[in-house]
């Protein structure tokens, strides 16, 4: 294992110390229990927006804390759900009197920990599950679809709605609408190594790739021979487009995400093909996002997310956001 760390067991806490040191004006970091909150919160009368999950997906979720997005993020150990005591303290810390929305990615551990926290919370809590990964067959015989790229879009749009003073039920309904209208699929060129484990999560040969990878290195649909970028994009787009389904005339937000180890220059090669294919299909890309926003440590690879837009979602997407990882309109 070759990593820029001091101690595999201290990765999350030392990163939190770095975040606290870098952004003292905008973020307030609690170490025990661990959470990253807006420095100017809780905002009286505003719905609090809380998300969280295992660490290792940065900038998700801590990088999205700030005006117009999350009020607080709970980081777990790397690739491990945070715990109910963290979520409870974080819920309390951002309760401005209008209730708190929990944005939960659909993983067994996250769901169980968030459920426990919601049961124990004294504040009014509504939970929204994000489950946009079409690589997983949506079946009663699995844990259901995983929450991946759409999480970023849900957090932005729910955050904008809360900032505009919308009540908890409406903010939750908007978050669900984003999840229902978004579909994603990812792929990996290389594995990643969880610091406290020390060895790669899986093995991929030099000429292989994993299609349908999850954000923790969970295996996907199939392992195939490496192909040119355009062919890979076609492989990812086909199941996304046919699942919702997206059809000619739809307005969409196209999100090309890097898994952490893929340079931006390659992500734009991916976006180039996404724009070509969607153009051919008659879809209108009204907004886009390209970059590393929901990652898997140093994994090389990409994921593509499409969100079907309407006027209200466009307006909320465009609303000002002021976080370390997403910032516009400020």
């Amino acid at each position: 294992m070759k990593k820029l760390i001091n101690d595999p067991e201290a990765v999350v806490s030392e990163a939190l110390e770095g975040i606290a040191a870098a952004h003292p004006d905008t973020l307030r970091v609690s170490f025990d229990p661990a959470y990253i909150a807006r420095a100017d919160g809780p905002v009286r009368g505003k719905v609090g927006i809380l998300s969280g999950g295992g660490s290792g997906h940065e900038p998700l979720h801590g990088g999205f804390v700030g005006r117009g997005m999350l009020d607080v993020a709970c980081p777990g150990a790397v690739f491990t759900s945070p715990t109910p005591d963290q979520m409870l303290a974080a819920t309390q810390a951002v309760d401005g009197g209008a209730g708190v929305l929990h944005i939960v990615k659909n993983y067994t551990g996250d769901v169980m920990n968030f459920e426990t926290a919601a049961e124990l919370a004294e504040t009014e809590v509504v939970s929204v599950l994000v489950d946009d990964d079409v690589a997983v067959q949506d079946s009663t015989y699995t844990a259901g679809r995983r929450g991946v790229g759409a999480t970023v879009l849900v957090e932005k749009i729910a955050g904008a709605a809360a900032e505009a003073g919308r009540p908890l039920a409406e903010v939750a309904a908007l978050a669900r609408r984003v999840d229902e209208n978004a579909r994603s699929m990812g792929m990996a060129l290389t594995s990643c190594t969880v610091p406290h484990v020390g060895t790669p999560t899986f093995e991929l040969a030099e000429d292989e790739m994993e299609i349908g990878i999850g954000i923790h290195g969970e295996p996907g649909r199939e392992r195939v021979e490496l192909e040119p970028a355009d062919k890979i994009v076609d492989r990812l787009l086909e199941p996304i487009l046919s699942d919702l389904p997206f059809s000619s005339g739809d307005r969409v937000l196209a999100f090309v995400n890097g898994m952490g180890g893929t340079p931006l220059i390659e992500l734009y090669i991916v976006y180039r093909r996404v724009a070509q294919v969607l153009g051919e299909r008659g879809l209108k890309i009204e907004r886009n996002l390209v970059g590393n926003f929901i990652t898997s440590l140093e994994m090389a690879g990409t994921s593509i997310t499409l969100l079907k837009l309407d006027d209200e979602l466009v307006q909320l997407w465009d609303a000002p956001v002021d976080t370390t990882a997403l910032r516009w309109g400020v």
């Binding site: 295992g54 759900s81 551990g109």
Partner: peptide, 8 residues
């Protein structure tokens, strides 16, 4: 302290 699914 455990996190994940094993914690709950």
């Amino acid at each position: 302290t455990v996190g994940g699914a094993a914690g709950p």
